[in-house]
Structure formats: structure tokens, C-alpha cells
Write a protein that binds this DNA or RNA. Structure first.
Lengths: 220, 220
DNA sequence: TTATTAATTGATCAGTCAATCAATAATCAT
DNA sequence: ATGATTATTGATTGACTGATCAATTAATAA
């Protein structure tokens, strides 16, 4: 009936996908369900997305874009390293990323990455961007240790996200964000037995850290 | 044909389940596939496990049992707090837990926990046990901060596991284990800006830390 | 042996779903 | 208007699969 331009319909279908994944908690939602939730026929969903996996990936790209936007916004006002880290932490555990739909999408996305190279690529983009942002943020306080520390902070973000995401008693992610800041403070204190160990980690991956926060695009 | 006692067949079917999940990377393996891989008919799989989800949970219990066994073995020889933490780290990133099959099972298990209360319960058992072991291990060096630090180390284990598990370039998990130890060392250094913050975390969850490493059973 | 129990099969049912496609309806350009 | 283009439908197909069950076979006991 109601005719809409391609771009709008695409995003409506993507939104419906995220909604349905959030409602059921898994990727076994049928295209029919999704289409219905979007108020269109299943045929249209296939018209715009060649198959189900493509649709899921598009949905995940939207989630990642939202996350990136949050980071970007919160980073704007952050002037000190401490504030910048807080921005990253708050974006990771903030309302956008911690809604049920985003959580479902994320957790299932990890599982999808196990069998879909496309999903894996997308996951790497997220990881690289996060790592890059963290290195940039940690450099002033950690110096050469920044890449090494960033790897732990990044891992901690993912791990705690998973924890609190799967904990029905956790109402929001603020506790997760607190932990990130505490971990970073611990890593940033001067006297580290670690220093000796992490010398070899001076820029372990030369391709990797770029001076400024990343704005990579998700395609490819 | 070949007749075997219940216990043996059960574990053969469970092993086949783990194998097939590992091979395909997702839970969409059919019971037929699993049965075939176990060398039995699909009917038998349903005879011993009332439905597919039950079978998956049984498989996951086996994975958790193997992990627990590894921790237990490695803990035996560990006398100092440092050695004990090393034991936990090595178990978490060791060969048993880092095989492709275990990785697939774990990642999909997280997704399953999103929709299955039974899976969620099982996941909590793992998390509580890990937390408990960490608190016990960290107490000597962290004192009152142990529960708080344990939450981060636990999260870091999960997060880094996910990272390296989904990284095809990572051959083993030894790098993950290294990170755990470094993070712990950072948290254990004396002069912490954190100390003031984490006072309120003195035993945040009274139900939680128990003096000795846990040997909870997985049922219920 | 014979009766009883336990293990195992495989065909079958009933339902589901991704993907296709021919047909229709709305919009636009001329 | 007219034709071309774009959006949209929904019926259909073809393949798949979880679960059931009646029948069969092997082991055990009496």
C-alpha cells in the first residue's frame, strides 16, 4: 500500500530486525516475523536484502553505527585523558548499547562471527576502532605501555558487557563503566612490576594504532 | 546394533554434540547430524535427551566440568597467590578450553543464555565459581578490595577469551593468560587512587565470596 | 529355554521457513 | 493520458527438521 523510498524502507526493516532479535533473544526470528513487525510483506524484505544473513549484518552495522555515534558525542566534550576514557566507558555501557535489543544483537553477533566471515570482518572493525581509541586515550598516561594496556581495557569492556548484559538483575551498565575506570587507574599508577614485562609490547602490531580516534566506515 | 550401557551412550552422544557444534560453529546442527556423528539413530538421541535444548545443556555441562577439572588440577601445585592466579589463567586459556569445539560451545552458550533460563542458571554457576576462586586467590594481596578486583579479573577473562577465541590468527590462548597476570599485578600494587573508591565495595554481595575454591555441582 | 527388560532403529508426521516469482499498485516523466 | 519505473504483495515451492512411536534386536534373569 503505502509507498516509501528505498532508504526509508530499508531502515524500517532493519529496525524491525533489531526489534525482533531483541524480543526473542536469538537469530531464529523468521523473515516473516521481521517483515510483519515492519509492516511489510516478507517478499519486500528479500527484495531489499538478498538473504537473511545480509539482513542481520545490516542490522549489526546499524548497532555499531549507533555505538560509534555515542562515543563520538561523548568524546567531544572530553578534554583530559581521564574524561576521554570515561566517554568510552559510558558509551559502551550507556543506554544505547545497553538496551535489550542491542544486547541481543551483540551476543548473537559474536556467535554469528564464528561461522560468517562477513560478521567476523565487521567485528574486527569494531575491535580495531575501540583499540585505536583506547591507545589514543591511554598514551598520555601509559606511554609505550598504551597498546598493551588498551588490549586489556578493551577485553574488559567486552567481558563486563557480556556479564552485565546477561544479568537480569543489572538494570543499567553504570557499574560496568565504573570498573573500566578503576582498572584504568590501576594500570596507570607509576610503580609497576609490569613495566619490565610489557616493554616488548611497544607497538606490537604496527598496522594497528593510529594517532587519532577512528572514524572507519563499516563497509568491507 | 552394538549395545552399550546408558552412561556410555549418553556421553558418546554428548561428545558428538560438542564435536558437531565445533564443526559448524552454531547450534543449528540437527539432531540427525549429531546422532550420525555418534554412530546412532536420531531416535536414540531423543530417547536419552528429551529434547534438543536438553542435549545442548548436557554438552555445556561437560565443557564446564572439563574446565573445572583443569582448574582443579592446576590449582593443586599452586602454593602462592601468584601461582594460583596463574593456574586459573592457564586453565581458562589452556588447551581444553581453547579447542575449537569448546570455543563454539562457549560462544553459543552465551547466546543461549539470552533465551533459556536453564542455560542462564548454568552460566551463573560458572561465574560464581570463578568469582569465588578469584576472591580466594586475591584476598592475600588485595584484602578488602578482593571482591571488587575479582569482578574485573573475571570480566577480563571472559572478554579476552572471546577476543582470542574469535581471532583465527590466535593459535593458542597463552597471550590471554599473560594479560590476566599483568592486569592482576597492576591491581595489586600498593598505591592506588582506587582504594578510596572501592571502600564501599567491601563485600558488595554478602552471599558471594566463600573462603575456599568452589566445587559446586552443575545441577540445579 | 523362555520371559523380561533395556537398547536401538528408522520410518513418519506435522510443522516450519528461506527464497522465488508472477502479478499488481503506486509514482513519475513526458 | 501513456508508458516506464519503482515499490510491494502474497501465494507457492521445496527442502528441512524436531519429535514420536511401533517394531526389532540384544542382553539378562528365571
Amino acid at each position: 500500500m503505502a509507498r516509501k523510498p528505498e532508504a526509508e524502507r530499508r531502515s524500517e526493516i532493519i529496525d524491525a530486525t533489531i526489534r525482533e532479535i531483541g524480543a526473542t533473544g536469538n537469530l531464529n526470528v523468521t523473515v516473516g516475523q521481521i517483515a510483519k513487525s515492519a509492516g511489510v510483506s516478507s517478499g519486500l524484505a528479500f527484495h531489499y536484502f538478498k538473504d537473511k544473513d545480509t539482513l542481520f549484518l545490516a542490522a549489526m552495522r546499524t548497532i555499531l553505527t549507533n555505538y560509534r555515534r555515542d562515543v563520538s558525542i561523548l568524546m567531544k566534550g572530553a578534554t583530559t585523558p581521564e574524561k576521554r576514557l570515561e566517554a568510552i566507558a559510558n558509551a559502551s555501557f550507556g543506554l544505547t548499547s545497553f538496551r535489550r535489543e542491542a544486547i541481543s544483537a551483540w551476543v548473537n553477533f559474536y556467535a554469528l562471527a564464528l561461522r560468517s566471515p562477513d560478521a567476523r570482518r565487521l567485528l574486527y572493525i569494531y575491535q580495531r576502532r575501540l583499540h585505536s581509541n583506547l591507545v589514543y586515550t591511554l598514551r598520555p598516561t601509559c606511554g609505550a605501555r598504551a597498546p598493551d594496556v588498551a588490549r586489556r581495557i578493551g577485553g574488559l569492556i567486552d567481558g563486563l558487557y557480556l556479564r552485565y548484559a546477561l544479568d537480569p538483575q543489572a538494570t543499567d551498565g553504570s557499574e560496568g563503566a565504573d570498573h573500566i575506570l578503576r582498572a584504568a587507574r590501576a594500570e596507570q599508577t607509576e610503580l609497576h612490576a609490569n613495566d619490565a614485562m610489557s616493554v616488548r609490547d611497544e607497538d606490537p602490531n604496527p598496522m594497528d594504532p593510529i594517532a587519532k580516534p577512528q572514524e572507519l566506515n563499516d563497509n568491507a
